[in-house]
Amino acid sequence: MTCEEAHRLMAELAEKGRGQAPAELQAHLESCRDCALDAWVMLSLAGSPDARAGELTEDAARRVAREAVARVRQADPAAEARQRRESRRWTRIAIAVITAHAVACGLFVSLVTPVLIERATALLHSLLGAGGR
């Protein structure tokens, strides 16, 4: 077992907050000082009763988010408008670039194409004329 594999297993055990380390991991920890310290730290932090208590549910997380937005708005009512302005600025830049590109393509087609057609026709005529003689 590599140190990386051992770390992954330790993280899984720490996430669960309980459980028995597999024999393979135990054997690795007996031979690797760094991983033994890592395991001790990670499992101590995850296994303490304070860390195990009170998971945040999705609903609670949504409530926290809602309250955070309300708090930010209350503290700085202009923040939201600023945030939107910033976001819209990039949208406007993107639209401007696309429009400029389209206009350039249109101009190219409308100005250059007739000249090209005219020259091609003239060339064709001269070739045909030369062939006829």
Binding site: A14, L45, A46, D50, E55, A61, R62, V64, A65
Partner: peptide, 20 residues
């Protein structure tokens, strides 16, 4: 809110282990 509903529980788990 939807985004935080997905991600805040993970941040909370990390904070819980860090702050105890």
């Amino acid at each position: 809110e939807e985004l935080m509903g997905r991600w805040l529980p993970r941040a909370h788990s990390m904070a819980r282990r860090m702050l105890g």
